[in-house]
């Protein structure tokens, strides 16, 4: 039985640059942390590379809670990438 994939969401200019609002990625040891997943996604295509070029401007949430690059990922997790928030 294969493991549940990661569900990836993109918001704001990350969504525009990647060219989609969400996708799924097979779970593997190299994507078992936010930083690992980010490195994997950056190599996925031109849009992804553009979206993740300015790493300092990328924030993440895991299962709808703000996360850090070190946050561990598990099969079936929902991981979102977005710029620093600007509400209010």
């Amino acid at each position: 039985m294969s493991e549940q994939p990661l569900r990836i969401l993109y918001f704001a200019w990350l969504r525009e640059r990647v060219g989609r609002a969400e996708e799924t990625i097979a779970f593997a040891p190299e994507v078992a942390s936010v930083a690992g997943l980010l490195a994997h996604l950056r190599a996925r295509g031109e849009g992804h590379a553009r979206a993740f070029a300015a790493t300092a401007q990328v924030r993440a949430a895991v299962n709808q809670v703000f996360a850090s690059p070190e946050t561990a990922l598990h099969p079936g997790d929902e991981v979102a990438f977005f710029p620093p928030v600007t509400g209010g």
Binding site: A12, F82, T86, G87, G88
Partner: peptide
Amino acid sequence: LIDWLKTGAPFWKK
């Protein structure tokens, strides 16, 4: 509440 909302809730303005 407004200070934390501005920095701690996932909204983006265009």
